[in-house]
Each structure stands twice: as structure tokens, then as C-alpha cells.
Nucleic acid binder design. Structure first.
Lengths: 154, 154
DNA sequence: ACACAGTTTTAGCCGAGGCTACACTTGCGG
DNA sequence: CCGCAAGTGTAGCCTCGGCTAAAACTGTGT
């Protein structure tokens, strides 16, 4: 009952917002999502193994090496990574920057979910999905909240 | 400085988690994302206009009517909606249920972001992107937080 | 009753992201 | 130094989500 009126309130609030164009952003995000995952992975794998090969990424994402290969070619065209035939994958300056900010965002979202009381496993999974859709402003709020919660528990 | 060690901690925590298979869920979500958006829209449009036509959806999502048409055909095959040639789009029982839960989730995420201090416009945009990636557990935490914040401000 | 405007469908294009099967390099061990 | 396993690249297929152009259908108004 009480819950229902709460819900109704939410819906009515949102009804006032423009509906057209709300989805553009979502679609635009899609195109960079995979790129972010990839540069993040490349950075991690280089840290862990010293280098990043197609196979490593295929295993990491649990997709075929062919898929990785094509994706890497695209990201090379886009300027995030560099590769020579049969050689390892490296990050460009841009790629490194993207990886950094991506990992930072990921870490913040994850810590935030923990601070919210979500358990570790769920937080990890949800963070994967959520990280790409968090605006700088929201991210800042999340960081603030996580820090606050952190200092309180200490 | 302090920020950096915080970050390092986050990363090290996540490093302990299994990496393979973390992305399956993200990919699986993708396939239902659009379906959720569609049934949500269909429900809204039926409420608003009394019926939902291809053109309405095309305008709503700002895509061509052709794209909508093909998507609707797919969702019909999947059992979310029904349509007769040149007729309006209706929700199946399943579709209605999906729409309900989708809208509820959307509303909660949106209210949650507001409670976190994010401004209305950003919250609306981010909610669009985030809603599809929130697990039931996280959603529950968000609802709890939003309610708490709401009662405090009252 | 029929023309015409508006809506829906069909045909056919593109790129992304998935796959299998097969071809080609690389580099290591005998 | 050569063969073979492992890694990488290529060809070709699928679905999904975009698009335009053009054909087919409704339904309204004169």
C-alpha cells in the first residue's frame, strides 16, 4: 500500500521528463563499453603476465580468439591499442588513459556497492554491468558515499 | 596519495575474484535489455494513448519504424508481445509482468540516484543505463537507501 | 466508391559481436 | 635444423540493431 504510492510517485516524477532522446545515451554507451572492457583487460594482463596476447584475452572474456582478433583490429583502428601480426597487444597513450579511468570507475562502483551492503560476489557482477553507465557526477557521489561509509566503519 | 592507496586496495580486492565468466552475465543482459525497454515503453504508451502502434515506439525511441517493426517481431517470437498485421501491439501476460518489474526497477534506481544527491536530469539518464544491470539484491539495497533518505528529509 | 495520406511491411544494405573450420607463423625441443 | 604444437590470422556463416527505399495495406473524407 505504502509501497504502491511510493512507486506511483516515482513514475509520475519521471513522466515529466522528456522521453524522446533518453535512449540515445544508452545506445552511445554500447559502442565504447567493449572498448573499455578490453583496455581494462589488456592493462590487467600486461601487469599480470608482462604481455597480452590474443589468447589471453579470449580466455579472459571466454570468447573465441577470432572474436578477440577482430575486436582488437577495430580498437587498433580506433587508436586504443597497437599490434603487429603475430605480436603482442599493447596500449596506446589514449588506451592507457582509458584503461586507467575505466579501472578507477570500476573500482569505485564496486566499493560503492559494498558500502551499500551488497555482498562481494553480487557487487563484482553488478559492477561489471553498471560501470559503463555511470556519469561523472554519479560516480563522484558514489565515491563520496563509499569513502564516508568506509571511514565510519573504521 | 590517500586516494591512490584506496584505489590500490579496491583493485587488489577484485583481483582475488574469478575473472573468467564475469562477463557472461553482462552479455546475457544485453539480449534482454532492449526487450525490457520495449515492454516498458509499450506499457507506458498503452496507458497514455490507449494503444501502442509501431510509429509510437519509433518516435519514443527515436529510431526508424522499420527497426521497431523487426524488434517487435522478435519480441513476439519471444512471447513478450502480440500483434496482428497492421494492428496495434499488445503485451502478453509475460510481457506485462516484465514491464511491471522493469518499471519498478527503473523507478527505484531513479529514486535511489536522487537520494544519493544526483540531479534529476543526470539521474534520469543514468537510470536508463544502469537499470538493466542491477541484481535483485542490489535493487533491494537501493530501495532501502532511497526510502531511508526519503523519510529523513520529510 | 475511390483517392490519397498515413501506417505497416518487405527487401536489402551496413557494422558489431558471436561462432567453426581451415590456413599460416612462430618458436621450442629433439 | 626441422617438425610439430600452440598461437594467430582468414573465410564465411549467424543474429541483432541500425538505416533507406519502395511496396502493400487502412481508413477517412469527399
Amino acid at each position: 500500500m505504502k509501497n504502491k504510492s511510493f512507486l506511483r510517485a516515482c513514475v509520475s516524477v519521471m513522466a515529466k521528463l522528456p522521453k524522446v532522446n533518453r535512449h540515445q545515451r544508452t545506445r552511445a554507451d554500447h559502442s565504447t563499453e567493449l572498448a573499455e572492457d578490453y583496455v581494462e583487460a589488456v592493462a590487467e594482463l600486461i601487469e599480470a603476465h608482462g604481455s597480452c596476447r590474443v589468447t589471453d584475452l579470449a580466455e579472459y572474456f571466454d570468447v573465441s580468439h577470432v572474436t578477440v582478433n577482430r575486436a582488437v583490429a577495430r580498437f587498433q583502428r580506433a587508436g586504443w591499442v597497437t599490434t603487429k601480426p603475430y605480436g603482442p597487444i599493447e596500449l596506446t597513450k589514449q588506451g592507457t588513459q582509458l584503461a586507467e579511468s575505466s579501472r578507477r570507475r570500476h573500482a569505485i562502483v564496486y566499493q560503492f556497492l559494498l558500502a551499500l551492503g551488497v555482498d562481494e560476489k553480487t557487487a563484482a557482477t553488478d559492477a561489471e554491468g553498471i560501470e559503463h553507465h555511470v556519469s561523472p557526477e554519479t560516480l563522484q557521489r558514489m565515491e563520496q558515499f563509499a569513502k564516508q561509509a568506509n571511514s565510519k566503519s573504521r
